[in-house]
Design a protein around this nucleic acid. Structure first.
Lengths: 110, 110
DNA sequence: TTCAATGTTCTACAAGTGTAGAACATGGTG
DNA sequence: CACCATGTTCTACACTTGTAGAACATTGAA
């Protein structure tokens, strides 16, 4: 059963959901990696969490409108929806350090 | 028993906690009101929630470093920590529409 | 001192979240 | 076909969260 993956339209992307999605450090880092290294295959992501947990995070990122998922064979290519997010919430990706390097004094953030 | 209210130092303000705090629409609106109308007394805030719930939200905002609380008689004056937040996460308050008016197409956000 | 006003804290609860193991689905390969 | 690789979905669980009522603390005023 192939069901189409849900992606909100640009105008449906909600700030509540985006901020919630980005409040998790792993999800924020996934977004950062997608921006820094371009589209990725899920398996290329390396975090100390279970496959099912990673899948959950990717679902949150996709359903909140932060990334796009394209099925390609057995793998899935995920892409940051940079333009949609920039159009909807200008400066947000920069401000949450997804598209901007963190200033020195921020790196030690707990 | 008067215990000093906890306020994180500027350098201790964590992006995780700030984003989580701002992912709630009521808390984000409180921040917006503080910016727009200056320091407020808690009782001036008008939301359809219980006193204890409002108090909880204010605690989250204070402990995440978003606002400062000053006890003054029986009331408490709350202030947006605009400069600290701007220094720590430049552009964030604007991007989450706390210090910037929402563009037309964003007002209908669900 | 007694009373009222302002908020916080305590307690409780339903809903949501991050986590992971097991099973499943899909697609490529031999 | 059988087999493996990639990820998702199902189920479960402990923890957190937003919510509110009741009691409490503090201060100012009558």
């Amino acid at each position: 059963m192939r069901t189409a993956l849900y992606h909100p339209d640009r105008d449906e992307i909600s700030l509540d959901k985006v901020l919630h999605a980005l409040s998790d450090p792993i999800r924020r880092d996934i977004a950062r990696v997608m921006h820094e290294q371009g589209p990725r295959v899920c398996g290329q992501l390396d975090y100390p969490i279970a496959k099912s947990t990673l899948s959950h995070h990717l679902k949150v990122l996709r359903e909140s409108g932060i990334m796009h998922t394209e099925v390609r064979g057995t793998t899935r290519v995920i892409t940051l929806r940079r333009e949609d997010l920039e159009a909807r919430f200008p400066g947000l990706l920069d401000a949450v350090q997804v598209t901007a390097p963190a200033p020195e004094h921020v790196l030690s953030t707990v």
